[in-house]
Design a protein around this nucleic acid. Structure first.
Lengths: 233, 233
DNA sequence: CTTTAGAATGAACGTATGTTCATTCATTGT
DNA sequence: ACAATGAATGAACATACGTTCATTCTAAAG
């Protein structure tokens, strides 16, 4: 009932120069808000996994998250925006996992490459939630292009990591692999396995997949060479 | 106004034994019905391509097909059933295309293998409509398992075709490739390319993809061999 | 304590959804 | 010609959808 200046915008004439001080004492509140934001993101991802993008509704998200209906628009303005935030959220998770694996990889090119593949097949990356959300977003990326960058096949970091391994291998062994082509081939295999896992989460065998994958990569890398230093580690 | 026995059910006491004769003269009607069925399937696929599975509604299908609202339930009972029929329809199209390519392949294993890959990358298989519909259905396959068989990664026919090529190659060159592993690798690459095409229909270069693909396959097949008869054709 | 900012709620709203079915229309059979 | 069959229609319906906003609640500031 009281006259208010809309949503906290405007007003704040800032008579003194004190408002650069970043508001103290509001820590707990902000933490709570951030917490609810995360709860909503996780719940939305869960609903997407279980019901697909077409079955992902505000009501189901409300039920899964336990927070009230209005929260979604309070935090994310709209449902579309929420989906976008989920895309960002899941992609960040994926990036974090892979970065770790890459840092721990060492300098031997094939060892590094294997570490990358292993990371890609580990359950921190290749899991029900991530693949399902990813597939859902990919299927919508034609009609919502802004989603593409979060679920792209053409990941620059991934490409560069693999490419560097192969280039290093070339130098180290004095061979001339077409690094670009093999990098793309390796990335394709990884994508293919992701799709296969999504469609067969129970039947999928990680060890078997890694085995297959490494067999293929070893042969691609070793072809025409003397084959030393390639078989297993 | 006239008293009717609902929708043509009941009544038909069938006094004579003549109704085993399979209704003549209804050809044109049936053709029309089948035509409308196809129109609906095509229109639904188009809507799925343009708006994703979550934007695929009866109203949009009606608009795209030009037929009336009630037709969908007349022909397919429900929207879910229509989606299922689209899955079947698209999968049949895909199967037909690939079968042709396989029959025209010849007996030389690597030539056959290349024909299979080429077919997989041709625009009769790898096109906007097919990939978009496929991705949409795959993203829903967790919540609707009955869709899986129409968009599966584990296609027995595909697997067998590639496997046979590799086994033949083994015999022909007296080598011992692990046919299972390489077949899975090749299928993964194909799946990966499909996903990449879906996300980058414009940037995707078929020739480049085939080039990359064949380079990878050649090396996988040739590794540790004398390399003869592998490079290009 | 009281005041206040803003986080959280959920009933209510308008729209869009999938489905139904009485009716219309076109084709076939007599 | 007429009657009968069943394909095709689309207004009407109930439900479910995303969004809004007056209100309540809660933690921090005075």
């Amino acid at each position: 009932m009281t006259a208010s200046v809309s949503n906290g915008l405007a007003a704040t004439p800032a008579p003194d120069g004190q408002d650069l001080v970043p508001e103290e004492g509001k820590v707990k509140r902000i933490v709570n808000k951030e917490h609810h934001r995360l709860v909503l993101l996780e719940a939305t991802a869960s609903v997407m996994v279980e019901h697909g993008i077409s079955g992902t509704t505000i009501s189901k998200i409300q039920e899964a998250s336990g927070v009230s209906r209005g929260m979604i628009n309070l935090h994310f303005q709209s449902k579309d925006n929420l989906i976008l935030a989920v895309a960002k959220h899941v992609e960040e998770e994926y990036r974090r996992c892979r970065r770790q694996a890459m840092e721990a990889a060492g300098s031997e090119p094939l060892k590094t490459l294997k570490a990358i593949i292993q990371s890609e097949l580990s359950d921190t990356v290749l899991n029900l939630r991530l693949t399902a959300v990813w597939m859902a977003l990919r299927s919508e990326s034609n009609s919502r292009p802004e989603l593409l960058r979060f679920v792209d096949t053409r990941d620059r970091a991934f490409y560069c990591s693999v490419f560097r391994c192969l280039r290093k291998y070339n130098k180290l062994h004095g061979v001339d692999i077409d690094c670009r082509k093999l990098t793309l081939a390796i990335m394709s295999i990884a994508e293919g396995l992701l799709t296969d896992y999504h469609l067969h989460p129970d039947a999928f065998d990680r060890d078997d997949a890694l085995d297959m994958c490494w067999y293929a990569i070893s042969r691609m890398v070793a072809a025409g060479n003397d084959n030393s230093g390639v078989e297993e580690d």
